[in-house]
Nucleic acid binder design. Structure first.
Lengths: 110, 110
DNA sequence: CTCAAATATGCCTTGACGGGCATATGAACC
DNA sequence: GGTTCATATGCCCGTCAAGGCATATTTGAG
C-alpha cells in the first residue's frame, strides 16, 4: 500500500536498486559492496520486496535478489506530463529560465 | 539538501506538482482545487520551493507558483539505468519474467 | 541430530515529518 | 493609519520509519 515514491525516497534503497540494476545479488553481496549492516540490508530488501521492486530466489543458504521493473515504470509514467517542460524544449526553456533567473538589473534580495 | 526523491514522496506535493504542470497557480487556487488547508498548501509550497521544484511570482497580494523542471529532470535521469529493463525489451522481458514466475511443474507454495 | 553460515524479524529508541491552530507578515484599499 | 484579503510561520502533537541489537529461522554440512 506504500507508494513507490515513498519507497525510493530512502537513499539506501535507491543505492540497492542501482546495484541490482547492474546484476542480481545476494544479501551478503549487497551488505559488503554497500558497506551497510546486514540488518539494514535485509529490512530494506523486505520493504522493496513488499512494494514489488525486487523478487527473491533461494539458492542454497543465499537469497538472491533481482530487480522487477513495474514500480519504477510507474514512477517513469508519472513523470510523463512533466517531460514537456524539458524534452524538445530544452533550448527554449533554458533561454526562458535564464531570462527569469538572472534579471540583469533588478537587484533582488534573496 | 533534501533529495528530490524525498520531496515527491509526499502525495499532496505530487498532486500540487501535477496541478502546476497544467498551469501556474496562486496559493488560493491550489487550496481550492485540491481541497487542502491553506496552511498545508503553504507549507508544502515552501518545501517545494526550497527544493527548487517551484518558483514564486508576487502578483498583488497573490503569490503565483510555477513549476521548475530541474529537480524532476534529476529524477528522470536517475531512472535511466533502469529503463533498459522495459524500454524496447518489453516483450523479451515479459517472456523472461513469465518463465520465471510460472515454472510449469515445480509446485511452488505461494 | 548438531553445528555453522546466511538471512530475517521483533523490540526499542530516536528523529523527522505532516496536520491543525493561532498568529504574524505583507500588500491593497479606504 | 487602520482594515481586510492573501499567504507565511511558529508551536504542539501524533505518527511513522530507520537504525541497532539481540534473537529467531532456514538451509547445508558432517
Amino acid at each position: 500500500m506504500e507508494s513507490s515514491f515513498a519507497i525510493i525516497a530512502e537513499p539506501n534503497r535507491r543505492t540497492i536498486l542501482s546495484l541490482l540494476a547492474s546484476s542480481e545479488c545476494s544479501v551478503g553481496e549487497i551488505e559488503h559492496q554497500l558497506r551497510m549492516s546486514q540488518t539494514s540490508v535485509s529490512k530494506h530488501l523486505r520493504v522493496l520486496r513488499d512494494a514489488g521492486f525486487v523478487e527473491v530466489r533461494v539458492e542454497a543458504q543465499r537469497r538472491v535478489y533481482r530487480l522487477r521493473p513495474e514500480p519504477l515504470m510507474e514512477v517513469d509514467a508519472w513523470l510523463t506530463p512533466f517531460r514537456r517542460f524539458w524534452t524538445a524544449h530544452v533550448d527554449a526553456l533554458e533561454r526562458h529560465l535564464n531570462q527569469m533567473d538572472l534579471p540583469p538589473n533588478k537587484g533582488k534580495k534573496r
